[in-house]
Computed example of a mutant assay.
Amino acid sequence: MSENRHQPQAPTRVQAMAPGEQITAHHHDDHQIVYAGSGVLAVTTEAGTWVAPGTRAIWVPAGCVHAHRAHGALELHLLGLPTSADPLSVDAPTVLNVSPLLRELILVCTRDPDDDSPERRRLRAVLLDQLRASPQQPVQLPTPSDPRVRAVCDLLLDDPADSRTLAELGRQVGAGDRTLSRRFRTDLGMTFPQWRTQLRLYHALHLLAGDEPVTTVAHRCGWSSTSAFIDAFRRAFGETPGAHRRH
Rank of each mutant, 00 (worst) to 15 (best):
M1V: 14
M1F: 11
E3H: 09
N4T: 05
N4F: 02
R5L: 14
H6V: 13
P8S: 02
P8L: 00
P8D: 06
P11Y: 01
Q15L: 15
Q15K: 13
M17E: 06
G20D: 07
E21Q: 15
Q22L: 05
T24L: 10
T24W: 06
A25G: 13
H26S: 01
H31P: 00
H31I: 00
Q32M: 09
V34C: 12
G37Y: 00
V40F: 12
A47Y: 06
G48A: 11
W50Q: 04
V51R: 13
A52I: 05
P53L: 06
A57I: 12
W59L: 01
V60R: 08
H68E: 13
R69P: 05
H71V: 01
A73P: 00
L74I: 06
E75G: 15
E75H: 04
L78A: 12
L79S: 13
P82L: 08
P82D: 06
P87G: 03
S89E: 11
V90Q: 03
V90M: 01
V98P: 11
V98A: 07
R103N: 12
E104G: 10
E104F: 05
I106R: 07
C109E: 15
T110I: 05
R111M: 04
S117N: 03
S117Q: 08
P118R: 07
P118N: 03
E119W: 08
R120V: 09
A125Q: 13
L128Y: 00
L131H: 04
P138Q: 09
P138V: 13
L141N: 02
T143E: 14
T143F: 10
R148H: 04
R148N: 08
R150K: 15
A151T: 01
L157R: 14
P160Y: 02
L166V: 05
L169G: 06
Q172G: 00
G176I: 06
D177A: 14
L180F: 01
R182D: 12
T186L: 12
M190K: 05
P193R: 00
Q194M: 08
W195H: 10
R196P: 02
Q198A: 15
Y202E: 14
Y202S: 14
L205Q: 15
H206A: 13
L208Q: 14
A209G: 15
A218I: 08
R220I: 00
W223P: 11
F229C: 07
D231L: 09
D231C: 02
F233P: 13
R235F: 07
R235C: 02
F237V: 08
P241A: 11
H244R: 14
H244I: 07
R245S: 14
R245W: 02
R246P: 00
